[in-house]
Design a protein around this nucleic acid. Structure first.
Lengths: 353, 353
DNA sequence: CGCGTTTACGTCGTTCGTAACGATA
DNA sequence: TATCGTTACGAACGACGTAAACGCG
């Protein structure tokens, strides 16, 4: 058993059992991977893959067990590498953030600029959550940080940091009947109109759906989109009224759209930064978290990630407050990590394996 | 980074930073380990060990982090190997059990014989808990199963299976004043005499100590020993009265020792089988657990180990009941593991790495 | 016939063991 | 001087890449 073999194994699994594709992604040759897989199976004494003819058809039950453990091995070796990179004060690397389109476009850019100024060599990879929850597991493999919104924090065991709280806004075309209501709006008023919103809100069992059903109302969702701009287009075209995050409402939306304050008709949301458990965060990840949630100290965050100790109880600010202030916390020059006798950089061998 | 490097690293750490000793234990050469350690440090970019002259003096803070992760990597690779061995229906291996002397001599032999009959090729390694708690972490590295006694289960996060309940017995020399008490014995009676017992009971804060202090009594422990036979010798020699596990009291103790039933003066104990978290148990380990606690099914135990799901709530039997019956549950012929397409044994390569 | 896997084979890099050296108590 | 770690070097193993063969759709 070799780390290389385990990595090949995982790469092949993640490439949908296509060895050639895995080889391309790994900068390896296809016969090499094929051979190493066979060696691994020889050593284990059973097949990890069911072969149909010559191609890999599926994994065996025993193989799944092995794959799970191999994943965990690779996570830990990546952790070791992260530790090493940080202790060396290396400022390069790649930060993979996955977020909703709203968060990615309206919230993250504020702080990513500051982060990038501190770490010029840092590569930032952004991706959106895919609509299909089934794909969530495989795509979240190499994600350093995900930014999600939830009405309350469903504890999935992953460490999460609350970032800010936000409300929904009701977006209607100018001149829409709801703009001439003459009284405070109610859920019943909203339910009378076809709705356009995020898929997560339209899902049965979501906090929005529950709020309606608690009032014995059944909202009619006529369209969903991840992209708030797309929702706006739908609203403009008269498809329905939009229910979107307040962050997505801006003055530049023009006079043809009107945002209606719905107060506390729907539960407020909290945006969370979720990290993977059992993974070591690079220094820039910690710095990003400090930018995102400056009310927590580096110690608070480190303790959460390392020991799972909960964060001190501080209410997350409202979006309006977040938006009002530029990120005021400049990044301190990164403090030297605990006393390390590092090698001079020239000796450092950027390791293969 | 290589699995071999990580294993060398851990071996050196566990050999108290003595490379030569680690080499002997690993059937490797000392220069080889030395070189691989250096390569690892080169790749990491910092020193894992502080060297004093040429010998390894201590680990660096960064090194400790790496060592922790490396441990976890090795645990997972061992898990993979265990999976493989089980899926191959291999019945060899080594079962490392650590237990108190009382458990090891008076409880475990009952079932180990049955287990050994089922797995003739199985090597069983017994060791005792050392008196020094500081050594507990390093010695418990490769332990598959530990059998401990505790008044209540302190949840350390490790999966634990309750085995049986037992009481303490008071052991006095024949003709001792306590045998002529003429009334029910009390804690105050006991506290009047010098006590000989296990170190765990004599420790401040133990359940025994607490029971005495709750009655405003301070027991005088004049001697402690792990070995119940040693305690008996002390009692025979008149050093004091013995407070030992009922399992250790037997008819063969002779007429010079008298066991006094102390009823519920002291809290009862429960013997637990504790397994390491995140480690895959071999089939023979599961079978041993079924022998030790036949009231739980294989499914119950598997669920506990795999998902941490708690066991069904069944009271553990008293020692007297355990002792009364021979282990009645014969081991079923091990059921075939989930559908695995195994290689013929001839193809199996007993892996190096 | 294209796609993908396996097998074969030559080359290269790496590891391992022996031996010698250096440093420390 | 004994013990322990490092360096040096030769031999052998193992991995990788190219090329070709095989199966399948």
């Amino acid at each position: 058993m070799t780390l290389v073999q385990l990595r090949y194994l995982i790469a092949v699994v993640d490439a949908n059992l296509n060895i050639t594709a895995a080889a391309a992604r790994l900068n390896a040759t296809q016969p090499g991977i094929s051979k190493q897989l066979k060696l691994l199976e020889d050593e284990l004494g059973f097949q990890v893959f069911v072969r149909k003819g010559k191609s890999l058809e599926r994994t065996t039950p025993a193989g799944v067990e092995v794959i799970d453990r191999a994943r965990s091995v690779l996570v830990e070796t990546d952790n070791i590498r992260s530790l090493a990179a940080d202790f060396q004060q290396q400022s390069d690397g790649e930060l993979h953030i996955i977020a909703t389109q709203t968060q990615a476009r309206l919230f993250l850019p504020r702080v990513l600029g500051v982060l990038k100024a501190q770490y010029p060599a840092l590569g930032i990879r952004q991706s959106y959550f895919s609509e299909n929850p089934a794909a969530a597991t495989s795509e979240s493999e190499s994600v350093d940080l995900s930014v999600v919104s939830a009405s309350e924090h469903e504890s999935v065991g992953s460490p999460a940091i609350p970032l800010y709280r936000w409300r929904r806004s009701l977006l209607v075309p100018a001149g829409h009947p709801l703009t001439r209501l003459g009284r405070a709006i109610t859920l019943a008023d909203i339910a009378e109109h076809p709705l356009v919103s995020y898929p997560s809100m339209a899902r049965a069992g979501s906090s929005v759906s529950r709020a309606f059903t608690l009032s014995s109302l059944t909202p009619r969702f006529v369209g969903t989109a991840q992209d708030p701009e797309l929702i706006k287009s739908y609203v403009r075209s008269g498809l329905g009224v939009g229910l979107i995050a307040e962050m997505a409402v801006s003055a530049s939306d023009g006079a043809d759209l009107v945002a209606i304050d719905i107060g506390d008709l729907l539960p407020t949301c909290t945006a969370w930064a979720v990290l993977r458990r059992d993974t070591v965060a690079r220094r820039y990840t910690l710095d990003l978290l400090r930018l995102l949630a400056p009310r927590y100290s580096l110690q608070d965050i480190s303790r959460l990630l390392r020991d799972g100790r909960p964060l001190p109880d501080r209410p997350a600010p409202w979006w309006s407050d977040v938006q009002a202030h530029e990120p005021v916390v400049p990044l301190h020059p990164t403090p030297a990590p605990s006393n390390v006798t590092a090698f001079p950089a020239a000796h450092v061998r950027r390791g293969g394996c």
